[in-house]
Amino acid sequence: MSETEDVLGTAAAWSKAGEQVAIATVTETWGSSPRPAGSQMAVTASGRMAGSVSGGCIEGAVADAAKRTMETGTPQLLEFGVTNERAWEVGLACGGKLKVFVERLG
């Protein structure tokens, strides 16, 4: 059902309710990444999450990065994959590689 989930709509509703929100978007994939480019996840400073950018492998790391972006306002372009050292911490079991853009809403 995640393809039909309205992540931006949820993010907008959270923002209107006064939450600080960051949006993470898959911008590029190589190999057998679980979600296509355009897949999105919204995260709030209070810890709410909607949507997904992988099969659950990197959501935690993306949420951490999102907290930094919410604090600083600076967007980040993250890279995950087997060639990345972070892969050992937050591995993609599928062996795929992907880039995720994280930005603050508002």
Binding site: L8, A11, A12, I23, T25, T27, Q76, L77, F101, L105
Partner: peptide, 29 residues
């Protein structure tokens, strides 16, 4: 993402108008 862009995007989707959100990487423009 600016809130006015998000509002424009939501409006287009509600009106069933196809739109594209272009984001420059990594600056976020």
């Amino acid at each position: 993402m600016r809130l006015d862009l998000l509002a424009g995007l939501e409006e287009a989707r509600a009106a069933l108008r196809p739109v594209v959100l272009a984001t420059r990487l990594p600056s976020g423009e």
